[in-house]
């Protein structure tokens, strides 16, 4: 139980560190020197030392509450993942994250935040059904408890290597990809709308958000590794997560940001292929 508290602190630390590594790798691929890997860590601390207030135009309570809720849901998500709870709850927490993204943009009253929030609704339309295809894991493993899925993998080998589960892995990969910074689907914080839904959250609020995002990155990467490779010891888990993140860094560095509706269409097409594949696999099996 105390280990969970330690895991929580570790998740914040590792999440921020991995964000930094992600930035560094992107920069090196684009032949820039890039910031040090500790940058995001320093970033969060710097934000937390700044003068902070609530914008006059904001919906005051919601402006603050949404930051708290954002951290809270991922603390819950981390617990579900570590105890091998229901995958469905993890899926729910991902959706709740979409809601907080939406609320983040809406609460400030800033037009840029509003644009980010609207784009978050648009992208929700495609990201969520994509995650629902993960429900197809149930068809393969016969259970939605993460502990049962890892037990299945211990007996039958990683899901990533089985042909049936590969499309699900791709769908989940796209999901995680669309949540790391600077990704091609990240239309909600695109730079043409300043910082999208995070625009008005400055100072302490932004530091809180970065903390939440760090736990989010940790949980999503760890969930991907656990679901498709299996339960690993901590040091192997961290290495596997880093490798997954590095593949994403390459994609982020080499692809342009998509336009909002095209991002949705591409993700929708991926769902289409996965659904067709699942139906065909279901008929054959």
């Amino acid at each position: 139980m105390i280990s969970f508290l330690l895991y929580l602190l570790l998740a914040v630390f590792i999440g921020l560190l991995y964000h930094g590594i992600h930035r560094k790798v992107i920069a090196r691929i684009q032949t820039r020197p890039g910031p040090p890997v500790w940058q995001e860590f320093l970033h969060t601390l710097k934000f937390s030392f700044k003068q902070t207030w609530i914008p006059m135009t904001a919906s005051q309570l919601m402006f603050v509450a949404i930051v708290v809720i954002m951290i809270a849901i991922w603390v819950g998500g981390l617990y579900v993942l570590l105890t091998g709870g229901s995958l469905l709850i993890l899926f729910a927490i991902f959706l709740l994250h979409k809601i907080t993204e939406h609320g983040l943009g809406l609460s400030s009253g800033s037009p840029y935040g509003k644009f980010g929030a609207i784009r978050s609704v648009i992208s929700a339309a495609s990201e969520i059904p994509l995650f629902a295809t993960v429900g197809a894991i149930y068809m393969v493993t016969g259970s939605l408890m993460i502990s049962d899925i890892t037990a299945y993998e211990a007996a039958n080998g990683p899901l990533l290597l089985s042909v049936i589960a590969l499309p699900m892995a791709i769908a989940m990969y796209v999901i995680v990809l669309s949540k790391v910074p600077y990704n091609p689907f990240g239309i909600i914080e695109a730079k043409e709308i300043v910082s999208g839904n995070k625009t008005e959250h400055f100072g302490v609020w932004r530091a809180g958000l970065e903390t939440g995002f760090a736990i989010k990155t940790f949980v999503l990467l760890a969930a991907f590794v656990t679901l498709f490779i299996g339960a690993l010891p901590l040091w192997l888990l961290l290495i596997a997560m880093l490798i997954v993140l590095l593949t994403m860094s390459f994609i982020c560095a080499l692809t342009p940001m998509l336009s909002p509706y095209d991002a949705v269409t591409i993700q929708a097409l991926i769902i289409g292929f996965v659904v067709v594949y699942v139906v065909i696999a279901g008929v054959i099996l």
């Binding site: 969970f4 929580l8 030392f49 708290v68 809270a72 819950g76 302490v204």
Partner: peptide
């Protein structure tokens, strides 16, 4: 129970983070 601990952490960890930052931030 473990579930009580999680409830406590889900409620109070974010508050701890935010209140810590608010405490050490630069004065207004």
């Amino acid at each position: 129970d473990a579930i009580v601990m999680v409830a406590a952490l889900v409620i109070f960890f974010p508050l701890f983070v935010i209140s810590t930052f608010l405490t050490w931030k630069a004065s207004d």
